[in-house]
Structures are given as structure tokens and as C-alpha cells.
Amino acid sequence: MSFVEYEELIKEGDTAIIFLGHGSMFPVQVQRGAQTQTKYGVIRHSAHLIGQPFGSRVTCSKGGWVYVLHPTPELWTLNLPHRTQILYSTDISIITMMLELKPGSIVCESGTGSGSLSHAIIRTVAPTGHLHTVEFHQQRAQKAEEEFREHRVDRWVTVRNQDVCKNGFGVSHVADAVFLDIPSPWEAIGHAKDALKVEGGRLCSFSPCIEQVQRTCQALTEHGFIEVTTLEILLREYNVRTANLPMPDLGGALDPLPVLGEAQFKIGVPLKETVGHTGYLTFASKNLF
């Protein structure tokens, strides 16, 4: 396995996603001789995982069973150990498209945080692109680096432990795109401009508060960025259910048809509660002139 390339069979060292059903899952690091406990019993890596194809059903010791899935950045986002608040796939999708990321893109990111977006960027820019990610928190930077190695994507990413607002991205005029998820993005706009290629590029800043957006937009205009747009994307999920509506009794039959009973139909109902706001996304292009 690798996060940037599908493989058929599970092998030692892989990160696999154990799927328990109903969206409940967790990641495991596959190791010969290791065991993983689930509520359905034990999974023995050597016997149950290594050499098996991804997507197969594994019967655990108590007779229950789970599926083992190939890791993807989207599954990782749902299962990664949080060291910070993270970006989810809905925001990541629009960020990736609006930054025009594709194989070969050179991207600068800060902060690395828990690496949720980083994995998605690496997946998209591989095998010819690169991610330069900056995290000022030393422990988080180290942890991210470890994860990138474990996931065999370290050749597509460079982690720098420095303050992006003071020291920038550590590269100059190489990036096609810059992404900022920091408390004061307006202090990093100058560095972002410097990191982007001379020929131009795209920028995105993620902020939860409108006051942050305001200052960022102002800084972007001052630094000559154009096409400054701010948007927000919201996910609406639906549960598919069978609904029943009983027929009302209107007191006897005027109509000869027997209308009493129930009407049954399949519906998609919105979740009772859902994420109402993650953050505002501000996009801009570096001006040529």
C-alpha cells in the first residue's frame, strides 16, 4: 500500500483501515505477529491481514467480521489521531480544485497541523509534484514527518519547523499554489507571494472568523493579488430510510376504496444535526504585473 498508489494485497508495514460497519472504523499498522482487538474479537495480522487482498472480509475470533480497506487520504482524514482541529474532505475538495492542484504541482502549506490536508495534497500532486509544509510546533512537525514516512509518501513532502509569518515557507518562486490555515494569515501573505512562481499561482486561506477574512482580503489586495473571492462550502448528508405514514380515518367510507392503513416509501432525510460552519475559504491569484 501507499497513499498515492493502490496495491492489491496487504503487506507488513501497511496502514490498513479496519471497517466495523456504520461508518465506524480505525487504522492499524500491519505487523507480523501483532494482534488488534475489536468488539468482534481479535484480528491476527499474520493470519488475517498479511497477504490478503484489501477489501476482503475478515472473520474475527468471536465470529463477527470486519472489512479491511486500502487507505486513502479521505479514510485517513476520518481516522487520523488529532493533534489539532483538522480540515475535512468537503473543504479539501474545493480547496484542491480551486488551487488547481494536479500531478506535478508544487504546493506550500502552513500549518501542517494533523496532516489531514497534507495527505490529500500529496495524493493529488504525486508522482511529479511536491509539498513544502511548514509547522511552527516542533512536536507536531516531527509527528507529521513520522506519519509521512510510515505512509511511504515522504519523498513528496518536506516538513519545515519554523514560523511561516516570520520566516516564510523556506522556498522562493517555486510554488504553483499556497495554502494557509493559521490564526493570522494576513501576516503570511507577503511570504506566500514570495513562495509562488514568478509566472503567478493560486492562493487559499482558511479562517473560521469573518474578521480574519477581512484582514486577509485587505492584505491580499495590498500585495497585488487579484481575483480575491471568499466562499463557504457546507455538506448536507442524508440518511436513506423507509418512511411510513398512516392513512387518516375520516370516519367511514364515502369512497369505496379501502384507504386505511399505511403508505410506505423510501426517503432521504437530512441528519438531525450537521456541521454548520467550518471556515471561510478565501482564494486569490498572484498578479503577473
Binding site: T90, I94, I210, V213, Q214, C217, V228, T229, T230, L231, E232, I233, L234, L235, R236, E237, Y238, N239, V240, G268, Y280, T282
Partner: peptide, 11 residues
Amino acid sequence: LSETWLRNYQV
């Protein structure tokens, strides 16, 4: 089953 909503802002 999902849908996304998109909201643009004047800043």
C-alpha cells in the same frame, strides 16, 4: 448520500 451547499461572500 450527500449534497453540498456553496455560499459566496462579498468581503
